[in-house]
Amino acid sequence: TEIFDDIKNEDQYNIHIELNHKKEPTILCSCASGMGTTSKLKDIILDSLPTGVTLKVLTYDYATLIKQ
């Protein structure tokens, strides 16, 4: 964290650090051909998971992702 504090003081970067933060397992689905394929992929992934597995599947437009 000391290195990040030094970088933050330079005002050139926007950094956010979360220590000891448990994240929900997540899969990100995106496709350059559009959201239709992405939605189908999400359904396939969710349908293939064993019962009781908790997993978040997010869908995003590819063009939007590459702009960020």
Rank of each mutant, 00 (worst) to 15 (best):
T1V: 08
T1F: 09
T1I: 08
I3D: 11
I3K: 06
F4T: 01
F4S: 00
D5M: 07
D5F: 06
D5C: 04
D6P: 00
D6R: 12
D6V: 09
I7Y: 13
K8C: 06
K8F: 05
K8D: 11
K8H: 06
N9H: 09
N9I: 11
N9F: 07
E10S: 15
E10C: 13
D11H: 12
Q12K: 15
Q12S: 14
Q12R: 15
Q12I: 14
Y13E: 11
N14Y: 09
N14D: 05
N14K: 13
N14L: 09
I15N: 01
I15A: 02
H16Q: 11
H16W: 11
H16C: 07
H16G: 02
E18A: 03
E18W: 07
E18H: 07
L19G: 09
L19Y: 13
L19N: 13
L19C: 07
N20H: 11
N20K: 12
N20A: 05
H21T: 10
H21D: 11
K22M: 12
K22S: 13
K22Y: 12
K23L: 15
E24T: 13
E24P: 01
P25K: 02
T26Q: 05
I27S: 08
I27M: 08
I27K: 00
I27L: 14
L28C: 03
L28D: 08
L28E: 07
C29S: 08
S30V: 13
S30G: 06
C31F: 12
C31G: 04
A32L: 12
S33I: 01
S33L: 08
G34S: 04
G34N: 04
G34C: 05
M35C: 10
M35W: 08
G36T: 10
G36L: 06
G36E: 14
G36S: 12
G36H: 04
T37N: 12
T38V: 15
T38F: 10
T38P: 08
S39D: 12
K40Q: 15
K40V: 14
L41T: 15
L41A: 13
K42P: 00
K42N: 03
K42G: 01
I44N: 06
I44H: 06
I44E: 10
I45C: 04
I45N: 02
L46S: 03
L46R: 03
D47N: 04
D47Y: 00
S48N: 10
L49F: 06
L49A: 02
L49E: 01
P50S: 10
P50I: 00
T51R: 10
T51K: 13
V53Y: 06
V53P: 02
V53W: 03
V53L: 07
T54C: 02
T54F: 04
T54V: 11
L55N: 00
L55P: 00
K56Y: 06
K56I: 05
K56N: 15
V57R: 01
L58V: 06
L58K: 08
L58G: 03
L58I: 05
L58S: 09
L58A: 10
T59W: 02
T59H: 02
T59K: 10
T59I: 09
Y60S: 10
D61T: 05
Y62G: 02
Y62W: 14
Y62C: 08
A63C: 08
A63L: 10
T64I: 12
T64M: 07
T64P: 03
L65C: 02
I66E: 14
K67Y: 09
K67I: 03
K67D: 15
K67P: 05
K67L: 09
K67R: 11
Q68E: 15
Q68N: 15
